[in-house]
């Protein structure tokens, strides 16, 4: 297991020169300050952020809804007092 981990780390470190490229097309077709590259970068960034934003917002909404609901339920404490004679009679009836 340790050998595999070391091998993985070595392979990752050996690939450092390729980190800056997103894909073969974007990396080689345009220059570094080309407007098309910049446009693609912003677009990719936007598309990457959107799912996280959506899932985060829905998750937060569900979390706070359930928390508020459980608080409300806790606020309504069931009566543990001994039932009165009238209530007991009602139960028997």
């Amino acid at each position: 297991m340790r050998r595999i981990a070391v091998l993985a780390v070595v392979l990752v470190l050996a690939a450092h020169s390729a980190w800056a490229q997103s894909c073969a097309m974007c990396g080689s077709s345009f220059g570094q300050n080309d407007p098309v590259t910049r446009a693609f970068s912003w677009s990719i960034l936007f598309l990457m952020a959107t799912p996280y934003t959506i899932v985060g917002l829905i998750g937060a909404y569900l979390y706070f809804s359930y928390r508020r609901s459980s608080r409300r339920r806790r606020a309504t404490v069931p009566s543990l007092a001994r039932p009165s004679a009238e209530e007991r009679q009602g139960d028997l009836a």
């Binding site: 407007p35 098309v36 910049r38 446009a39 693609f40 912003w42 677009s43 990719i44 936007f46 598309l47």
Partner: peptide, 11 residues
């Protein structure tokens, strides 16, 4: 919007 951004920012 991603498609729009590509065209909007590249020209």
């Amino acid at each position: 919007v991603g498609m729009y951004l590509v065209f909007r920012l590249s020209r």
